[in-house]
Structures are given as C-alpha cells and as structure tokens.
Design a protein around this nucleic acid. Sequence first.
DNA 1: GTGGCGATGTTGACACTGGCAACATTGACG
DNA 2: CGTCAATGTTGCCAGTGTCAACATCGCCAC
Lengths: 211, 211
Amino acid sequence: MPADSAAARPYHHGQLRDALVDAGLQLARTGGPDAVVLRAVTRAAGVSHNAAYRHFADRDSLLRAVCERCMSRLATLMEQRIAEAEPHADPQDAAWARLGAVGRAYVEFATTEVGWFRTAFAVPDAAEAFHPTEGVGPGGLGPYDLLSAGLDELVAAGAIPAERRPGLEYAAWSAVHGLSTLLIDGPLRALPAAEREQALTVVLDSVSRGL
Amino acid sequence: MPADSAAARPYHHGQLRDALVDAGLQLARTGGPDAVVLRAVTRAAGVSHNAAYRHFADRDSLLRAVCERCMSRLATLMEQRIAEAEPHADPQDAAWARLGAVGRAYVEFATTEVGWFRTAFAVPDAAEAFHPTEGVGPGGLGPYDLLSAGLDELVAAGAIPAERRPGLEYAAWSAVHGLSTLLIDGPLRALPAAEREQALTVVLDSVSRGL
DNA sequence: GTGGCGATGTTGACACTGGCAACATTGACG
DNA sequence: CGTCAATGTTGCCAGTGTCAACATCGCCAC
C-alpha cells in the first residue's frame, strides 16, 4: 500500500525457494555445511527468518537441497575434466587417462572448493538411501556413475579382467575420497602443496596398480 | 556450610578437568563431536556451566582434548588387532597380515564406534600441524605410526621395493579412511552388512596389490 | 593461628540459533 | 466482488557459547 521508496519488492518474493538455496550455496562455499544457517540464509534472501518454513520443513531439509547442488557441482567438474582428458589412440590408454581425470577432478574439487565438498557429503540423515539420481551434472550422471563408467571402460578395453570388476568402485572411490578428507579436514590439513601433489600421485598410481 | 544431605560434594571438584573430558568422551560416543556441548558436559560432571572455563579456553579447546582421546582409542584398537594378527613363518606373509590387521582395525573402529571415529577427526582448527605424538595408544604410537611401521616391515621383508616406499602411507591411509567415512557419513551409509564386508575386502585387496 | 590471595566454581546476562504459533498480505478463482 | 489457500511477518521460547561479576576454598607468609 505505501507507494514508498524505490519499488519496494513485493510482499511475495516469487522465487524464494531457489533464492534460499542459492544463498545457502553461497554460504556453504566459504563456511561449509555449518554455515548454512537458516537465519543467515533468509537474511541473504532479504526475507524474514521464518519465511523459509513455507518451502522447507526444517533446516535439514534446506541443507539437503544445498548438498545436492554441491554434489552437482562436483559431477560437473568431473565431466569437464573427463572431456579434457588427453586423447589416446590405444583404447586402454584412453580409458586409463579418463579414470585418472575422474580421480584428479575429485580431489581438485575437494581442495579448491572445500566448503562445497564438505557440504556435498554432509547430507543430513533421513536420507534413506543412496540415490544415484541426485546431484548429477549436465550429462545426467552423478560422481558415482562417472566413476563406474570409467571402470566399465577399462574392462571393455581389456585393461581389467571382468571377473575382478565387481566392487572396484569401492576401491577407487575410497582412495580419492579418503585423500580428499584427510587433506581438507584431517591430519593432512597442513601438508604443503608440493607434498599434496606427491600424495595425489602416489594415491592415483597405487589405485591404478591395484584395480 | 550446611552439613546437609548426603555428603554434599565439596565446592571444589578436584578432578574437574578429567571429569569434563570423560563426560565429553561419553557424549561423543553416541553423538559424535557435535554432542560435545559445553553445558551438557558440565551438567554430566555435576558442575555449573561456566566451570569449564577454568580448565579450557573455550569449547574448541575441550573438544580438542576429547578428540585426542578418541584418536587414542583408535590407536589402541589397532595395536590390539596387530597383536592378534595370525602368525606366519614367512616374514612377508606376517608383514602382510599385520598390515591387513591395521586396515581392518581402522574400519572396524569407524563402523563400531562411529561417534568416536567422527570425533577423532573433527579436531577444531588452530591445530597448527600434524602432531604424531598426540592420540597415541599404549605403545606410544599413533595410528599413523602404526601404519608406517607396517609398511616399513613390508619393505624390510622384501615385499615392497624400497624405491617405491615414499608416500605409500598416503595410499593405504586414504583407502581405509575413505571407505570408513563413506560408510558412516557418506553415500554408503545405507549399505547392508554383507556388501560392507565385500567393500572392505575389495579395498584391502586393491590396496595390497597397489602398494 | 590468621589474614590474605590465587585458584576454582557460581550466578546472571547477552547475542545467536532453530522452531512454533498467531497474524498479515496477496493472488487466483468462484 | 468475496473467499481462501499460499506465502511472508512478528513475537516468542528453549538451548547454546561466552563474558563479567561474585562466592568459596586451599595454601602460604607472617
């Protein structure tokens, strides 16, 4: 009613849900999941603190949405690095290169987007199960799918005997995920850049040899 | 002054610092690091909420003490499982068995003492560096030292060429740590027990092969 | 002894958080 | 034009970490 100062934004925001998730993503980028604070998020969206409850049951619900977006970012970077992988004439070499790109992208994301990486894996409970359809990249595949596809390629190219294929995701995923968390949250936090690079090399080499 | 009901405990607790850490450990066991709440801890110790500030600068400081104890527990279990490792006449076999015990103990601790494991690695910042002297077991060695020793044994036994030794801790540690976190906090949370066992086997096998 | 003093524990307050309840505003549809 | 459900707001509450001021105690010099 008050035709007051400078186009006062309407009572109804219109895109509040997306705006909240965006704000959450922003906060998570620098502060990790703990920075996704209801009141900070609503403040950033220029809205009162309780408005969020019209779109999310509670903070966890909002956080879940933010987590999914973070996972999406990870998937996107992985797709990008796969696409950039050096071409090889030999299909085996090509498959190895692409799997290496997957692993490097994973650790790269963790170390360059620490907050987002932490958030991607800080999904609150009540997440009943592992839903590969969530947190996907432009290609519609999640990080797990991309890794899986890389391993399948290696089997198809004859680099890995098919009978050893089952469960190999666990080996590769654990290695890069473990290195990532040790580097950003764990005791390897303080490792200087040069040793980080060495650690990454050792881990990736050892994974390849072990598959 | 009131010689009142049932030996009212003295104004001065006497062992408050330890009591607080013990209480924190208790809370962390079921609730992880987030459950180490100043007021809950002091309540458990039967003391007013601000008493903790006479022994710890802030909550993070208390949490750090609890984290160290959790790391100690991990080291203790690892030592125990190493000692129980199946004996082998061949020194190489023995060394492999012991390294496997290290890895299994790590994941065992993570999955059976989830809260403690999470707490062990949730040490707040201002942890200036990696201090291998903290969080040790009865033998005076930390988890990292135990892993390191296992790898050294393998080199000494001739199972691993010495020139590949540098950095191998990263490979082994990352694998078991990654599997642990994926299983308890990550997308593998909902994995049924049977598949968990398979995952562990695959990871350990692949690490051994890759070293 | 006794007086004082530092170490230890307590009370009370503040700003912040997540969540509930009650109220206000709005657009859509009859 | 009237009604209603969706959306946003105000006010409140319990719980948290932290600070400041106060209370109680053990110990040591006199």
